[in-house]
Design a protein around this nucleic acid. Structure first.
Lengths: 191, 191, 191, 191
DNA sequence: AATGAATGAGGTTTCATTCAT
DNA sequence: TATGAATGAAACCTCATTCAT
């Protein structure tokens, strides 16, 4: 028949192809009902190839999650000291907006890896709240923020960020959500 | 034979038995890996009986979810006007504490019905944020709160409440989480 | 369509049906290439039913093996003292013949459970050689046999018995094999 | 790059490397669970190379089996007439001991090629019993053995030899097994 | 001759749901 | 109303074998 040629790639390239195929499907379906079968069809590879790169389905999801986290970290790097004195409130506002836009555009994936049975099965180190806590601490050191407890507050703010993104993805007014979020953050961290 | 006597109960009582058995297991396992098989064993009924009362597994989860929501509503009723002028900040603080204690004690169930594939399959009307928005509106009407947008803010505060409960259930210091939460809420709603 | 009616049986009856279907196939194919799929087709049950009774494929083989051993034990019971003095050489000759006939008629099953990867995966207590050693000991006590070491000799005689059956099943002359076997046993055990 | 130099060997040498790697693994694991993957890793060659030399997995096992048979034949050659009159009973005793020692030291391989699904899939010409029958015939011609039927008896003695080796490999007392075996053989073949 | 990425048929196992009793 | 044996559609995963390089 017209069986497509066997395409030989470097392992890294092939792995990426599979992950990206998975991301497309997860984004479209929120993770629910996406199976190995679907991913390999989307990626145009054989089933065995999938398991060559991901021993289990959860290993794929883990990779997807790691890529998501890394992508946001790369997209909104923490402020560098060298750029002069930091306008903390403005910085926080900007980051909040960036997060909403980033995460709402990837809501399906986020759902699949953060609000699913998978998330319960394979809990995550939880990098984001840690980075947020560090940010709060830095702002406090600069005298820009009040004396809230950094870690608990970071946790709470983080889920608020996430919820805002989810709301926007679900159709809520982006600017209204962002305004409410920024208000909450500014007020919470204000001296 | 000496088969255990078939216990004839009112339909409602039998249904409750099953739900409560399910709640015990979901609470213990966070929902992961709890199967119909397990529930009927815990409830002491036959498998067919389960489907007599719950056409599908998700119907059971829906019932569990509804009961959870109803239980909290019953446990912390909204303030009644008749009790004289309301101390809004104090009210909010009290509700936050109540929510943390209630939800952290039922974290497993909450996980199973709110942070799982089920939650994605069967989204919920979302009663809690609505009630919270109403509360904010009432406080605003009384001049106790500032002019934030009630619905978006309610959404954000609600997930913060939830996260605080989750953190406590996971071992975080209850009082520290509560303090951070109360600070956030008070500041966010302050005039 | 003409989907066959669902046949409800007692668990024991259904289990037996499945085992017997398996035995037919194993006997016919020597175990090689017989799969769950084949057994359920032969038994006329659904695949899930198989796993209801045999958690794994090897559990089925174990049941088949146990039945085989039990069947031979039942078919040729050890001599009872009450029947008067025993003619040991004649007894041994008779048992040898019985074993050859029994085992050669079930060569396929024997192959599947005793000379296969399964046998290596799940080694057996090895009841037969033990019973044979007891028989030798009893004959020695009666002065009918010489002073060979019972256990090692029983092991060796047992595999010879088995090989004779295998040879007969493979087409060798039954009487010639039996004669050679009886000669070997008699000579080995003679005083 | 620094990829390990592709070692160019004569085909025969490369094939031997693979077989010997396989033998090491089969001996260690009794054949169960040894896969092509394992063999090529042990041999330090690529997977494709394996199939260059062995069209199928069973071809490898066949080679292993042939080497095993040839190795024993080489290790204990049949007696040559030129050495003068043969002491048949002593010869037989010696061969039995040699077989036990040889086979018990290679029990894993023996299991993999003689008592496995492979052995059923690819039955063997059965050289060993044939040679044993010839030996019996020669002894009979010399007047040292009785008039047993050579072929059936050789079959039975051969499996006894094999079982003795298996028992020793499994931890049985070598000398006790050997004594029982020699007794059985001597008595069976005695005039 | 040698490599190792890619294949896909085939196998076991799970479990929500059905249905004869 | 209640039972529990029976179902079968997935789902995951393995691994001998192929083939482009």
């Amino acid at each position: 028949m017209d069986r497509p040629q066997r395409r030989r790639l470097t392992p890294q390239a092939r792995k990426t192809e599979i992950v990206e195929a998975a991301e497309r499907l997860l984004q479209a379906h929120g993770g629910a009902g996406v199976r190995v079968e679907d991913v390999v069809r989307e990626a145009g590879v054989a089933k065995g190839t999938f398991f060559l790169y991901f021993p289990t389905w959860d290993d794929l999801l883990e990779t997807v999650r790691d890529r998501l986290v890394a992508a946001f970290a790369a997209a909104s790097p923490p402020p560098r000291e060298t750029d002069g004195p930091i306008d903390w409130p403005a910085l926080v506002d900007r980051q909040a907006g960036a997060y909403i836009d980033f995460a709402s555009a990837r809501q399906g994936i986020g759902q699949a890896v953060f609000n699913s049975d998978f998330a319960a099965r394979r809990p995550m180190a939880g990098d984001a709240p840690v980075r947020l806590a560090a940010l709060i601490r830095a702002g406090q050191a600069a005298g820009a923020f009040g004396s809230v407890a950094p870690e608990p507050t970071a946790r709470l703010l983080y889920v608020a960020l996430d919820e805002a993104a989810r709301a926007v993805a679900a159709g809520a007014d982006r600017d209204a959500m962002l305004a409410a979020l920024q208000h909450m953050i500014r007020r919470t961290l204000a001296p």
